[in-house]
Design a protein around this nucleic acid. Sequence first.
DNA 1: CCATCTTTGTGCACGCGTTCACAAAGACAT
DNA 2: ATGTCTTTGTGAACGCGTGCACAAAGATGG
Lengths: 257, 257
Amino acid sequence: MATGRTHRPATRSRGIPEATVARLPLYLRALTALSERSVPTVSSEELAAAAGVNSAKLRKDFSYLGSYGTRGVGYDVEYLVYQISRELGLTQDWPVVIVGIGNLGAALANYGGFASRGFRVAALIDADPAMAGKPVAGIPVQHSDDLEKIIQDNGVSIGVIATPAGAAQAVCDRLVAAGVTSILNFAPTVLTVPDGVDVRKVDLSIELQILAFHEQRKAGEDAAHSDGTGPAAVTREESDASADQGPDGDVPAVMPA
Amino acid sequence: MATGRTHRPATRSRGIPEATVARLPLYLRALTALSERSVPTVSSEELAAAAGVNSAKLRKDFSYLGSYGTRGVGYDVEYLVYQISRELGLTQDWPVVIVGIGNLGAALANYGGFASRGFRVAALIDADPAMAGKPVAGIPVQHSDDLEKIIQDNGVSIGVIATPAGAAQAVCDRLVAAGVTSILNFAPTVLTVPDGVDVRKVDLSIELQILAFHEQRKAGEDAAHSDGTGPAAVTREESDASADQGPDGDVPAVMPA
DNA sequence: CCATCTTTGTGCACGCGTTCACAAAGACAT
DNA sequence: ATGTCTTTGTGAACGCGTGCACAAAGATGG
């Protein structure tokens, strides 16, 4: 998963396992599709197939919600949509700020999936004065000087960081100080936050690297196992050869490095 | 984690646990930063702090690589960078195609992190004829009619899907048929692929929903524990959690997908 | 050469998550 | 009512991942 939690001792949140929480949105999406097709009930088997999971797992997940299925019939689609929505807190309004309106920030601002689930883009914030006032996705960009005020005025508790890596921690600190307690981080950095603050990260580069690893394995099964040897001597002399193309530690880019 | 694997029975890839593979890019990033500062060696403790993980975990991770640290000293930064890069397959060139050049696709195309790690954007593909030829991030967009040819001509094995949900599965099928064996999916859909094809997904909406869940819990600790109402038959112990606000108990709770 | 000190590499135990497999529950037909 | 058939809910076993804690390895100094 492109995502990874930061910290958090795998604490069960009120009896609901983290792994289950992470799947609820998946179920919700599948259920919503069924709902739109006016399907009244669905079996664990069908729903599991739609969500791409094991049916036993799905049943156990629902059992944590104290779910109500009917044996011999299945689950009531509408009811389940409502229950999961409520459990996830989607029945309320979540004002969100996006900090860093570059390519990615703009893409996020335009992303329809936000609004459709109770998430409302309350403000777009960027450090570039030239951006101030410029509308993106119909919302005028505000300067980061006003970050604290914006957070407080809008009662924002969820912040999205889409800045370059170098700015992320500073932005994060300011968000937290202003009252934000949940952060979705797109910058390729490890963020340090106080207890009580949740951070989730989305890291494109990491995802690609994981794919590359598996891809290499697949390819390597037939062909080359020739390079292999890691000559012990390699250490020093190789330094420039092995050398990575420097650029990436301080990525100027807007996305995860 | 913004990411989630699809399928895959938690298979160990050549003895290296999945969880470890997922952390290697993190270590690599931290190491690259050290390398740029010309730090010669680093202890597991220091590196673990930089990567935001437990030091014992880090040492165990490296031990799977047959890693070479020096007791009493630590790890040689350059050597480790080289080893991890090689293990992840980053020493070779990975041509990548991005399908769906909307806001997100464009952001991805502009993402600098691609090039810096051996990933090369070989082509941008979109279904809109109006986009064809138009350059994005310096690369001309090509029409999806030519998808198969593009994949084959460039020897692409990794594809990025940034299309609307509705188009994702069809695009996925075509990519796979054309020879792509690793897919990074940004579309909010569960993709079905044949065995041997890896799919990783990045799902914004899911990440936000998970944050909302925890946010709700944090907020709910002070406030509402007042639900009380015990309407309709309560199946299990905790079931009260699911039953509440009588008035809209069976309301469709319209929630767009 | 020996002693001491640092840091790695790992054996071990524990807990979460997954999956199987089945009994209990209810729908439905007779 | 009673029996049959479907599908849920869950007990139990297993495997992966995590973190502690320590012995082994090597550097360093006398």
